[in-house]
């Protein structure tokens, strides 16, 4: 089993900020918009270097989404920045009509997704955003796992023609993917091969899945671990191939089990290779205030939960 180590922890939103700054230097068509959250989105470097390509909309997310759609008319590639809650639920109809249905090349970049936003509580902790976005025809949905991958994804989506939802977060998490990685939209990444259970994780749960794999190995269970950074389009082939080998699957995500990655995996398997599945996800609930660690523990979104789900699903084979 491959061992993953890290020397540094960093927040994925900083990966976004670094990627955006890089794009500012390399792609003159990239413009950015923000609804009064530039420090939280780490947009300062882009803004400082490209003030004419930055649009501060104030606390007016609906107008920001519409303006982003309009900026594509004239050839620009707009990146919008605000919290995940205000990037999706608050502006769903604007995204649906002016961006998705209109086929506009807008990159919706959403920070502070999920429970790990922490102390601000449930008003800000959206756990439904993946579902909202993946249901929109033509929308690509990406949830990278660490700083390096978020930076690489931020850069890669500029080359993809069409609307993208890029989801990242606030807590500092281990950096374990390569700094020089090429980000391929829709391509699953095999982290560890195994034979007893497939663990499919996205975002912050990928590192937890790696830790779970190590704990399972000590118990004599061989886990195959896959990083699904792109929830839509989903790498169905990689999922089917793995589950054909292991015979069962655990999905892990910082999101409601209704509408998330797990449901996409379940649909894929139901169509092609039915198999037992356990869902590490929030279970149709809102979040609450607390530290990120406390919340991930309380709502069962960590390595321990993945281990327990793996042992359970293996018994169901």
């Amino acid at each position: 089993m491959k061992k993953y180590t890290y020397t540094e922890k960093q927040d994925t939103r900083s990966g976004f900020g670094a990627g955006l700054a890089e794009l500012g230097k390399t792609n003159e068509k990239v413009v950015a918009l923000c609804a009064d959250l530039t420090p939280s989105l780490k947009m300062a470097d882009f803004i400082e270097a490209n003030p004419e390509r930055f649009f501060q909309t104030g606390i007016a997310e609906a107008n920001m989404m519409g303006m982003a759609a309009g900026l594509t008319i004239g050839g620009y590639i707009p990146y919008t920045g605000t919290f995940a809650n205000f990037s999706t639920g608050r502006v769903y109809d604007q995204i649906r009509q002016s961006i998705a249905y209109s086929g506009k090349n807008v990159k919706i970049c959403a920070s502070h997704a999920g429970l790990t936003l922490g102390e601000d509580g449930a008003t800000h902790q959206i756990l439904e955003d993946i579902g909202l976005m993946k249901m929109l025809p033509g929308m690509t949905v990406i949830n990278p796992c660490d700083y390096n991958q978020t930076k690489a994804a931020t850069i890669a989506i500029a080359e993809h023609e069409g609307p993208v939802y890029l989801r990242f977060g606030r807590p500092k998490v281990p950096i374990f993917t390569p700094a020089d990685q090429k980000f391929e939209i829709g391509k699953a990444i095999m982290l560890n091969e195994g034979t007893d259970v497939t663990i499919i994780a996205t975002g912050h749960l990928v590192w937890e899945a790696i830790k779970a794999g190590e704990a399972l190995e000590e118990k004599g269970i061989s886990a195959e671990i896959i990083n699904i950074h792109t929830i839509k389009p989903l790498d169905e082939e990689a999922i089917i191939k793995s589950v054909k080998k292991t015979g069962c699957v655990v999905s892990a995500e910082e999101h409601n089990f209704l509408g998330g990655l797990g449901e996409s995996v379940a649909r894929t398997l139901a169509e092609h290779h039915p198999a037992p599945q356990e869902f590490v996800a929030t279970k149709d609930t809102f979040g609450e205030s607390g530290t990120p660690e406390q919340l991930m523990d309380k709502y069962g979104l960590n390595a321990e939960a993945i281990v327990a789900a793996s042992e359970k699903v293996i018994k169901r084979k």
């Binding site: 413009v31 004419e52 390509r53 649009f55 609906a62 107008n63 920001m64 989404m65 519409g66 303006m67 982003a68 759609a69 309009g70 900026l71 594509t72 008319i73 004239g74 050839g75 620009y76 707009p78 109809d93 604007q94 649906r96 009509q97 002016s98 249905y101 209109s102 506009k104």
Partner: peptide, 27 residues
């Protein structure tokens, strides 16, 4: 047609984006 419309209230935002794009393009 450059944008879908029907759900009301969205057109001016889109137009503002397009207007800003024109300024960036020195159009």
């Amino acid at each position: 047609v450059r944008i879908a419309s029907g759900s009301l209230g969205q057109g001016m935002s889109v137009a503002l984006g397009a207007a800003q794009a024109k300024k960036l393009n020195k159009d």
